[in-house]
């Protein structure tokens, strides 16, 4: 800003927003599919309790994914989001079964800050722009489930929880989703998901090079070094992880300290 002495900002981080650590909770009918197993929470299957725990641990954001996404389950999810927003004051993204602007409105009204759209973004790409126009593009996360297809020499996009091939190329689709108004991409490698072998770095690099919006890496995190690898320049801006935190193998603060040791800019520990 003109007029401000340069000294007022001396020493402030120059790297832009910190890289983010985002625990993800898979939820069905209002219950976490894999609860935290290492802590005596009153109810380890309650997404609200888990969210509050990760907030205390210093998570930068949280993601709830409704993996059944039936209409009953969605109604339960609304109530879960409301209870979470009443006590957790970090950003919350909610996904699963979001098909229309009305669904987005309902989730944001309940206390979500962003919604993640997966299948509907492909079957009805106009939804991305419609959501971005009403609520701002920062609210619209497009989730991409990608799998390597040798014949394509690249990654194909899958919908319906990974069961159906869309025929789209992941890198092309990422660029189109960004152009249509997505604020962020949640990029899951189906090849790596559940393997704990690390993120698909080639996929991350290919997608990151095709967009200017933030990319969240998902699928495959098994060690803290995997988080470091995913967050190198030209790859992801944020890392999503589930099992490494849920099973207590690593705490979020430990992950943050590890990233900092490797020169990755992260938020201060929560005191």
């Amino acid at each position: 800003m003109k007029g401000l002495a340069p000294s007022v900002a001396a020493g402030l981080p120059e790297t832009g927003p910190y890289r983010r650590i985002i625990p993800c909770l898979d939820v069905t009918d209002g219950r976490v599919v894999k609860g935290i197993e290492f802590l005596a929470l009153r109810d380890a299957g309650d997404p609200v309790e888990m969210a509050a725990f990760y907030d205390r641990e210093g998570a930068d954001e949280l993601v709830f994914l409704d993996i059944t996404a039936s209409s009953d389950s969605r109604r339960t999810m609304i109530e879960v989001v409301e209870r979470t927003a009443d006590q957790v004051f970090i950003p919350l993204t909610v996904g699963g079964g979001v098909r229309a602007v009305a669904d987005i409105r309902e989730l944001l009204g309940a206390g979500a800050d962003k919604v993640s759209i997966n299948t509907a973004a492909i079957t009805d790409p106009g939804l991305i722009a419609a959501g971005a126009e009403v609520f701002g593009r920062q609210c619209i996360v497009v989730a991409i489930d990608a799998r390597y297809e040798p014949e394509r020499r690249g990654w194909g996009v899958y919908t319906h929880g990974g069961r159906r091939a869309s025929g789209l190329d992941a890198v092309t689709w990422a660029a189109e989703a960004a152009r249509r108004g997505a604020g962020e991409l949640l990029l899951t490698s189906m090849d790596r998901d559940g393997t704990r072998d690390g993120y698909d770095l080639a996929l991350l690099e290919a997608v990151a090079a095709s967009v200017t919006i933030p990319v969240i890496a998902s699928g495959g995190a098994g060690t803290l070094d995997h988080l470091v690898a995913g967050l190198q320049p030209g790859r992801a801006d944020a890392v999503l992880a589930a099992s490494i935190f849920h099973f207590g193998e690593y705490r979020v603060d430990e992950a943050r300290a590890h990233l900092a040791q490797h020169g990755i800019p992260v938020r201060r520990p929560v005191s």
Binding site: G16, R20, D60, G183, D237, A238
Partner: peptide, 15 residues
């Protein structure tokens, strides 16, 4: 020259 929007945590210094 930077990714826009800025999304995430960043530091504020009080003057």
């Amino acid at each position: 020259t930077v990714k826009v929007p800025q999304i995430g945590w960043n530091r504020a210094r009080w003057l």
